[in-house]
Design a protein around this nucleic acid. Structure first.
Lengths: 266, 266
DNA sequence: TGCTAAATCTCGAAC
DNA sequence: GTTCGAGGTTTAGCA
């Protein structure tokens, strides 16, 4: 078996200005092989399913992936103008003087028809990509930081439980403060708005209902959206600022501590 | 001035297997011209901004649009693994033995670095697409149908206001029924779930609070998600079915009526 | 499989 | 410019 070199790039076959008959043959083969296909050309689109849409002729870039997803990109805009999520079946046939690529999504039932009348080029291949994607600062990591070091919020704060199930959902951080009062924390990675305030309120009410004691509700986030502050105050709750940067710092310190512990115990 | 034919397709330049120096030159030119660029090759990515991420080497398809948006696509999945929204500035330089395309988003400050070590091909061009995109059945159109003809929901229902601002948000339809009771309608274009029930509940509560009268809450959608029905009933509210097809029919009739009125008044 | 909550959500409109 | 809500949202995590 031939060794694949570390920087091997799966070749893409390129066909420039194919006529529609050739395009039909190329695409049939690619669909059967579940190749990654790029089609640049002049097309129109019809979509029908959860909603329905139509788009007249224009030059677009179409990506069809081996997992059965499709996206039609216009010259500008981040989002595709038409698309299908993974899991589609493809068929292809002539419709008048244009070539119709139909992608069929079974559930929910959705169909996207792309009609090509002119194709600039078709590229197809099987890209190889086994790398792991790593997102560094998530809400979960912010919670980890808080759980591992509640003191960053307030002197004397102690953890009782996290991701604690109560009826409306999960309490990010459940603990007691220096005076022994129950503390319920709702954590947001970005600006916290009124919906976060209401969510926290529901948790606090639920905890009060079952415990019948004083419960502090603290909304923790990098900042508040406008209106959230007054709402929070009027509902008798608090806001405390916590930034991703601070969390990263705490998590870094934890790691360092663990490493030094490892050496001490060795 | 030369006439552009109706099915004119702006040509894409294709360069297969360019070395990194040639790729650098090609891309520099394309960035200056704000071309649409497609790069297929082996790359790694580093992103830093609202969050941060890293992705090791793999074969990927990169789209760079004239509006300054970027997306790096893996062999599978609908969404790009890394991206930048429109409005970025690009720079390109060598980093060790790889070619680094840096996209810089000013506000919020975000940087995406894509490092190429091998490029299968680069395609660039200026696609022309002036077509209007048309989404046929939107929630707004369903509301228009309901507002223009409240009778489709219930005999004797009258409109008082729509898109009415109350604190949690906007009430889709606000009216009175045949018995003079206030009716609050929450409209969903697709299946309505528990979150829609809760949304309606908040609006009803808000209206009750300010008006201190009987308020009917009606959830209007093509169908309910499982669990929503019992939740709705237990909160003392109702469901009424309304399909996009019915709305389309009503809107069509309205248009016909307007046209005939036009002829009568002529 | 169905539901819930988050997202580097994006996008557009209203304030 | 900011905020807010909708989306053919998509996607990931669970029951």
């Amino acid at each position: 078996m031939r060794q694949i070199p570390d920087n091997y790039v799966s070749e893409f076959s390129l066909v420039e200005k194919p006529d529609l008959q050739m395009a039909n043959n190329l695409l049939l083969k690619s669909f059967r092989r579940k190749d990654f296909v790029i089609i640049v050309g002049n097309c129109r689109c019809e979509y029908s399913g959860r909603a329905s849409s139509s788009l007249d002729w224009g030059d677009r870039i179409t990506l069809i992936k081996g997992d059965g997803s499709v996206q039609v990109h216009r010259p500008s805009g981040y989002e595709p103008v038409n698309w299908q999520p993974p899991g589609c079946m493809f068929s292809i046939f002539f419709e008048g003087s244009s070539l119709n690529i139909r992608s069929n999504r079974p559930k929910p039932k959705e169909i996207l028809d792309i009609f090509f009348r002119d194709i600039s080029f078709i590229a197809s291949g099987r890209p190889v990509d086994d790398a792991e994607f790593n997102l560094h600062v998530s809400e979960e990591q912010m919670r980890d930081a808080l759980v591992s070091n509640p003191g960053i919020l307030e002197e004397g704060l102690r953890l009782i439980d996290f991701e604690r199930k109560v009826e409306p959902g999960f309490i990010d951080f459940y603990g007691k403060d220096a005076l022994g009062r129950i503390v319920v924390v709702e954590l947001k990675r970005a600006s916290a708005g009124k919906e976060a305030v209401l969510q926290l309120k529901r948790y606090v009410d639920e905890v009060k209902k079952t415990n019948r004691v004083t419960v502090r509700g603290i909304l923790v986030a990098p900042r508040l959206k406008s209106g959230a502050q007054s709402m929070l105050v009027s509902l008798g709750m608090e806001f405390k600022k916590l930034t991703p940067e601070k969390c990263a710092e705490v998590l870094h310190k934890n790691k360092m501590t663990k490493i030094s512990e490892f050496f001490e115990s060795d």
